[in-house]
Design a binder for these strands. Sequence first.
DNA 1: CAAACGTGGAT
DNA 2: TATCCAAGTTT
Length: 294
Amino acid sequence: MTDTQAHREQVHERVLSWYAAHGRDLPWRRPEATPWGIYVSEIMAQQTPIARILGPWLTWLKRWPNPAALAADPPAEAIRAWDRLGYPRRALNLHAAATAMVRDHDGEVPADLDQLRALPGVGEYTAAAVGSFAFGIPAPVVDTNVRRVLARIALGEAQAAPSLTKAERDLAAAWMPADPDDANRWNVASMELGALVCTARTPGCGVCPVADLCVWRVAGSPAYDGPRRPHQGYAGTDREVRGAIMAIVREADAAVPAAAFTDVAAADRIERAVAGLVADGLLRLSEQGYDLPR
DNA sequence: CAAACGTGGAT
DNA sequence: TATCCAAGTTT
C-alpha cells in the first residue's frame, strides 16, 4: 500500500486540503504578490526562519517595489537594509540580480528556470520555487521541509540525508502530481506541512493529515540511524568576525579606519576577515578607510 | 564534494 | 550551557 501511485494520490489529496485550511497567510502568497516580491522572499528565506523575514520583507518591498528601484540605489543601501538577517552576500546578490533583470530582462523577474538559475544567489531550489510560485512552472521544489516530509512519508526515515542526493531529486519528481496546478499547490503545501507539522524536532503527528499514510509513523517512528549533519559552529570562526565587522561598517556614517575593528578579535583574524569581505565585494577600501560598496 | 558563509530562537 | 535548526548557494 505504501508508495504506490494510489498512495501518493491519497497523500496529495489530504495535504492539499490541509493546506487550504491551515496554510499561513504570508504576504508573498497573496494574489497581489508580484514575481519580484516572491523572488525577494525566496532569497530572504534561504537558511532563515520565516518569522524573521516578515518585517524586513515588508520594508524592502515598500522601498524597492520592483527590480529597477533597487538597481537605481547603490549596493550599500541594500546591505544596510539587510541589517542582521545574516549572510549579507544575499543582499549584494539581490542587488546584482535586480541590475541583471533591468539589463537583460526588461526589468522583470525572468519567467524561465534557466534564466532564474543564472542570477546570482539563485540555485536549484530558488529557481524552482520562484518558477513554481510566481509563474506556475511545475518544477519540483525540494527544500529542507520537503526533503524531511518525503523522507518520513515515503522512505520511513526520521530525517533526510545531510545533503541533497540524486535519489531525493528523483523521489521528489516522482511525487509531483500530474496536473500542473496540483503540482504547484503540492510544492507549497508539502513545504508548509514540513514547516508547521512535520517539523524536525518534535513532529506533530497527532495533527498530521497523513499520519496513517506515513511510512515512518506507521513503522513506529524509528530513530534516524544515518550519518549526522556536520556541526556548524560559530564562536571562534571567521564568520563571527566578519559579522562583527559588517555591523560596525553598516552603522557608521562614513568610512571607518581599520582601527575601528581592533576590539572585535585578534589582529590576524581581523586581517583575514577583512580581506575576505573585500574579496566578496561586501567591503571597500578607500583613502578614509572601509565602507560599503557604491 | 566538503567547507565556508550570519544570526538568533528553541530545546 | 551546548547544540540544533532555519524556504540554500557557491567554490
